[in-house]
Design a protein around this nucleic acid. Structure first.
Lengths: 229, 229
DNA sequence: GCAGAAGCGGAGCAGGCACTCCGGTTACAG
DNA sequence: CTGTAACCGGAGTGCCTGCTCCGCTTCTGC
């Protein structure tokens, strides 16, 4: 269940090597690790998270055994990919926070985040799986949310965004847009931008109407992202 | 593949039946048909469309063989359920069209439609499957869309809704809200209303911003609902 | 009450999946 | 070059699906 991705090769077999330091992967193993990641990225992005592992092995030009040696579980592989995406998000958020036009920065961050999910079906699928239960990912997710929160504060202060929403709201709305966008993407590429536009207009202060419910608490959000279903 | 769901209740039981028409189901078969539908409704609503057929049989108190005799395919069973939901939608739309407050009527219709998906996970799952490729469902879907279109026209004329959206937009936004809402529903029941509120505010004229893309064409919508993925 | 048709149930089938296991191969230290 | 630990590949396993098949049971018209 909680298999660690990295090869925790334990105490060195015959030699007097220190048990503490894990030694480096062999060259071919390193190559394969990279190949698998790359292939998984491509396959999951196009086919979604339900793509079979054999397909990834095939795409990477290695045997399935090799895939599972590098990533003991399908989930481990997915987590590795989601982690990359998360880091990209943090980076983008950081850039948005550096801008001096809070409204525009906010909107283009959101747009970028949506596009990320549109272009990577697997990433979109991953959200809402019990995936974020894992400590490592939860931490990353919190980082994103915290930055979005700051981004939001600035945009609200600039009267570019309604004042009754929180960071989690943005992420949820985002995911909703991506989900619907993906339904249409094959037949009408780019229409997701239309729905993102509608969603963003809903976040503007001009049309703001009292929301019927309070924002979900952090625990509720975590439980959701982590999925109980 | 194209099995008819309804139990062609034909001529009166005891009477002289024509050889051509298929006669009525036996009493126990009718009972089981109803039981299966009921069970499927309940199971799919709670667990989503991926719930195994055996579970439905169990829940209905019949063998799997019986389930598959009534509904030769899992998809047939799902279609039967979706059809019911569609008819409910048409009904609700009709009621909304009869109201003399176009804005309120529109919003409460949308709210009802969202709730329908929230309360029936299976129905929500069904949308975006290639399900709507089937003629029978497509027709029903068109009926819903046409009514939503009229509803929309009235609301737009009353300046309660922005003028640059079409019926399909509403349905897509709706589904997006439902999808996100379902993620949270277990941990924070009812929060979907918050996101529906945000979405509805995005449809108001006050904050309307030029949308970056044209609305999807009918063909594109059908292809989407019908699913290419 | 009595055929016999209609219906029932659930063992079994086929297929797809994540994951394992082990004989053979390869990289690399000495 | 050589020994060996690390690594590779892919046939195989176990599990879970949707769906079928057929001997048995139940309803129903006469």
């Amino acid at each position: 269940m909680t298999a660690s991705i990295e090869r925790a090769k334990g105490a060195a077999p015959g030699s007097a090597r220190l048990g503490a330091t894990r030694h480096q992967l062999r060259a071919d193993a390193q190559r394969n690790h990279a190949r698998v990641l790359e292939a998984a990225r491509a396959v999951f992005a196009e086919q979604g998270i339900d793509a079979p592992m054999t397909l990834i092995a095939e795409h990477a030009g290695v045997g399935i055994g090799t895939v599972f040696r590098r990533f003991p579980t399908k989930q481990d592989l997915v987590v590795a990919l989601v982690q990359q995406r998360g880091e990209q998000l943090v980076e983008a958020a950081e850039a948005a926070l550096a801008s001096d036009k809070p409204g525009d920065a906010f909107r283009s961050f959101v747009s970028l985040a949506a596009e990320q999910q549109i272009r990577d079906r697997g990433f979109c699928d991953s959200i809402g799986t019990q995936l974020f239960a894992r400590e490592d990912l939860r931490e990353l997710f919190d980082g994103v949310r915290e930055r979005v929160g700051r981004m939001l504060d600035r945009a609200i202060e600039a009267r570019e965004v309604r004042s009754d929403i929180v960071a989690a709201d943005v992420l949820f709305v985002l995911h909703g847009v991506a989900r619907t966008g993906l339904m249409l993407e094959d037949g009408a590429p780019g229409v997701w931008r239309r729905y993102l536009g509608l969603a963003l207009d809903g976040l503007r202060p001009e049309a703001a109407t009292a929301l019927p419910r309070k924002a979900p608490t952090k625990r509720q959000v975590d439980n959701a992202a982590c999925g109980g279903g």
